[in-house]
Design a protein around this nucleic acid. Structure first.
Length: 804
DNA sequence: TATGATAGCTTTTTT
DNA sequence: AGCTATCATA
């Protein structure tokens, strides 16, 4: 491959950009991280001819993507084609061959995790040279940095706070109430979503199309948005969307400043470009207009975040948006067997409007492919049979020398996890649920954070409202409403105004005492911090003196102890930061507590969304049924667009597997507590016959049979299981229940419908909501096989039919 | 103001 | 089914 690839003439480019950007000189002298003129003029060591360590083992396309540094470049990287590797090698190349200093590169990712990984891998490639990669981060953390520097340009103080989703919704609720809108018909959550959606599209209130006002409160949508923004300004706060929007506003209104940034960022790298929304796209385009050196890496087939504003169009339109763009396709897959790739390709081929890539097996794993297993597709009776089968498969995988952490169960929605948790607990299979409510989203953590926020910024009304009566101080809604009315009239914050209201007789009794104590305590804690009390100690003091700890200790509910533990963990996490503001800033943006224990040998259970970017030797894909996957809601809300996104999700799911993929669907499933007959997902029929092995298990398509095997009892619950997971807790509770009433005879008692169905007999005429009339062919416990007049033979649950 | 009952809703997830 | 948010009641 192109060893002869010539290095672009950088000195000429630099000279040119100096001329083109008059403010560049100024920037250089003002910014310590910038190259001095002499540094820029200094001769560089000749670039090594393709021997750089970061080029080792790259295939020709990957190499091309790394070496094509100048001009816009789109790298279409299919699943498992070494995307992250290319991105980090490219960064290493740019820095290692002195095309730019680390501080002159901008690398954006979507998640903190991806940013962390990228930084680590880049540093591994280039060592100390990579230090100073301070513009490597998420869209939000980078735009927050920029906004802190220039907050005054959009009317904020640089100390602005960043609201989380919870705060946003509460703010929306206040606006709805103030505007006399019926909060049942128009929910706060919906308004928050609407505003988020507008911000994703980079629409400030003045730019929202007029008719969209009617999306909320009979035409009050835009007005609510305006009020919301005004409130944020008063609170000196931003929501996540604002970070980007304010950046864009600043860039657009201050061309000189924009030019500074354009020349500052000589090379821009973007990960997961298919997930960008309009605001992110505009932000990138503004920044890239200087150097034009923007490299976006993505895969249109893995765009699965349309529901939160991602525009697949961004990637589809790249060549138009950035004229002269080069496109490189990475299609050699180094991850999966040919059957797995064929299955994934066959499904995704049903989507229209793709950029089109065909994955093929990279050379390295071709040999193993000779006896590679086909993708297994299995239909089962119900969710319980499905989890039982998957658990059995995992056990035999482990018995034959495999490990638990080589297996993953990928579900469409988190409610589907439960069946697997229960089964794994029963069998003592170690597992871990990935995702779910995060540490900093827990109520007790938010409460503690609100105390700290209020100490940092007295004007943080949302924090005030959150904890003024937490623990109970006799300050109820009535009192709070009074205070809010005063604050609204006066224009100052609750914390400032409350002492003044307390001077009057407006508030009496318990409320008055509670408020006085609250204000006094907050002031006192703030003084202690000012007088040098370490912030971790302060946090402990607050939890103790506010009565928060007491409240939890008195709480007899099972979660109370976990909550106390979480608070301890919070204090510990604070210790990793030198100052309180530093800690709060981190939490607002990162919302992530490094939780250990990833190195244990556990089966992973996670959603398909959560699985993107990960891989396992063995992947289970349960629940491939219409209305579950593709999800009914997705189809209802977004039609064909929604369906195609679901299909991409299927593609993501299949391509997570290295060696074995097991797809399954059931005939009957309990959804929202109701039994439903379900049809196999259309995606099942989009799989290629040649690469798939259809295993007909008892229950779905075959004859009724004894597929109930007794495998264990509740009493066997081992110490090995993950005692923190929701499933474990539930089962422990169930187990207590069963002990008093008699233990279940077999595992199926755990999930089977109670309330004995009438005994159906062969030959009886029955009626079923979905299939209509039919006659019972077999009857086995609560499972019936019925010959329906219109839809033929089906297996259904007895409680699901009535005698006709 | 605090508490218990009930009505309603339910994907996916980051920042 | 299970959670939460809101409402009626003490």
């Amino acid at each position: 491959m192109p060893r002869s690839h010539s290095m672009p003439d950088i000195s000429a480019r630099l000279a040119h950009s100096n001329r083109a950007n008059p403010c560049y000189m100024f920037l250089m002298s003002s910014n310590p991280n910038r190259l001095s003129i002499s540094q820029m003029a200094a001769p560089r060591p000749p670039a090594a001819k393709g021997d750089a360590p970061y080029l080792d083992g790259l295939n020709p396309e990957q190499r091309d993507a790394v070496m094509t540094t100048e001009g816009p470049l789109l790298v279409l990287a299919g699943a498992g084609t070494g995307k992250t590797r290319v991105l980090t090698a490219r960064l290493a190349h740019i820095i290692g061959s002195r095309l730019a200093w680390p501080s002159q590169t901008l690398t954006v990712t979507f998640t903190n995790k991806a940013a962390r990984e990228m930084r680590e891998r880049a540093l591994r490639l280039i060592g100390d040279a990579g230090e100073g990669l301070r513009w490597l981060g998420t869209f939000h953390s980078i735009s927050a940095q920029i906004l802190r520097q220039h907050a005054e340009l959009v009317g904020l103080k640089s100390s602005f706070t960043i609201l989380d989703t919870d705060d946003q919704v509460r703010l929306c609720k206040q606006i709805i109430v103030a505007e006399n809108i019926d909060p049942k018909r128009w929910t706060p959550r919906y308004l928050a979503g609407l505003i988020d959606g507008w911000k994703n599209r980079a629409l400030t209130p003045d730019r929202v199309p007029a008719d969209e006002a009617f999306n909320f409160g009979d035409g009050k949508g835009i007005k609510c948005y305006e009020i919301y923004q005004a409130r944020l300004k008063v609170l000196n706060a931003c929501d996540f969307g604002d970070l980007l929007i304010h950046n864009i506003t600043i860039f657009q209104q201050n061309p000189d400043l924009l030019k500074d940034f354009q020349s500052k960022f000589r090379y821009i790298l973007v990960d997961e470009y298919q997930d960008t929304n309009v605001a992110q796209y505009l932000w990138l385009r503004l920044l890239a207009q200087g150097s034009q050196n923007i490299c976006c890496v993505g895969d249109d087939d893995q765009s699965i975040y349309g529901w939160r504003g991602a525009e697949v169009d961004n990637i589809l339109r790249f060549e138009k948006d950035f004229p002269g763009a080069k496109v490189i396709r990475l299609e050699r897959n180094y991850r999966s067997t040919k059957h797995i790739l064929a299955a994934a390709s066959s499904v995704i081929a049903h989507n229209r409007g793709r950029l089109g890539k065909t994955l093929y097996v990279g050379d390295d794993n071709a040999i193993e492919n000779v006896d590679a297993a086909k993708v297994k597709v299995r239909g089962l009776w119900d969710g319980e049979a499905e989890s039982r089968l998957i658990a059995d498969d995992i056990e035999s995988w482990v018995r034959s020398g495999g490990k638990h952490d080589e297996c993953a169960v990928l579900v469409r929605a988190s409610w589907q996890m439960r069946a697997f948790e229960e089964r794994f607990i029963l069998l003592g299979i170690p597992y871990r649920v990935i995702g779910g409510p995060r540490f900093f989203e827990r109520a007790e953590i938010r409460d503690a954070m609100a105390y700290l926020r209020l100490i940092r910024s007295p004007d943080d009304d949302l924090a005030f409202e959150r904890v003024v009566n937490q623990p109970k101080r006799g300050v109820g809604n009535t009192t709070l409403a009074k205070l809010q009315a005063y604050a609204r009239a006066d224009g100052r914050s609750l914390f400032v105004l409350t002492p003044m209201v307390l001077q009057t007789d407006e508030i009496k009794g318990a409320a008055k005492r509670g408020l006085t104590q609250f204000i006094d305590q907050i002031s006192m804690w703030r003084d202690r911090l000012a007088n040098g009390m370490p912030h971790t100690e302060l946090a402990e003091v607050i939890l103790e003196e506010s009565g928060y700890t007491d409240m939890l200790q008195k709480d007899r509910s099972p979660q109370a102890q976990t909550r106390l533990d979480n608070l301890k963990e919070l204090v510990r996490a604070m210790g990793e930061f030198d100052t309180l503001p530093g800690f709060l800033e981190h939490v607002e943006l990162v919302m992530d507590a490094s939780t250990g224990g990833a190195d244990e040998d556990q089966v992973q259970i996670l959603t398909l969304h959560g699985a993107k970017g990960l891989e396992w030797p063995v992947v289970f894909l349960p629940g491939w049924e219409e209305e579950v996957f593709p999800s009914k809601r997705s189809l209802d809300e977004s039609g064909l667009k929604g369906l195609e996104e679901e299909r991409r999700l299927a593609y993501v799911g299949i391509t997570r597997a290295r060696e074995r993929a097991y797809i399954s669907f059931v005939a009957n499933r309990q959804i929202y507590g109701r039994w439903q007959s379900v049809m196999p997902s259309r995606f099942v029929d989009e799989l290629p016959h040649e690469n798939v092995e259809v295993v007909s298990e008892t229950g779905y398509s075959g004859m009724p049979g004894g597929d109930d095997a007794f495998t264990g009892s509740i009493e066997d619950l081992g110490e090995r299981s993950n005692y923190q997971s929701p499933g474990w807790k539930r089962l422990k509770e169930n187990s207590a229940k069963y002990r008093s009433t008699g233990a279940p005879r077999d595992a199926s008692d755990l999930t089977a419908t109670s309330g004995g169905p009438e005994a159906f007999r062969k030959g009886q005429r029955v009626f079923h909501d979905k299939f209509g009339y039919g006659r019972v062919a077999f009857s086995e416990g609560n499972k019936l096989t019925v010959d329906f007049e219109k839809s033929g033979r089906k297996k259904v649950i007895a409680t699901f039919v009535t005698l006709a």
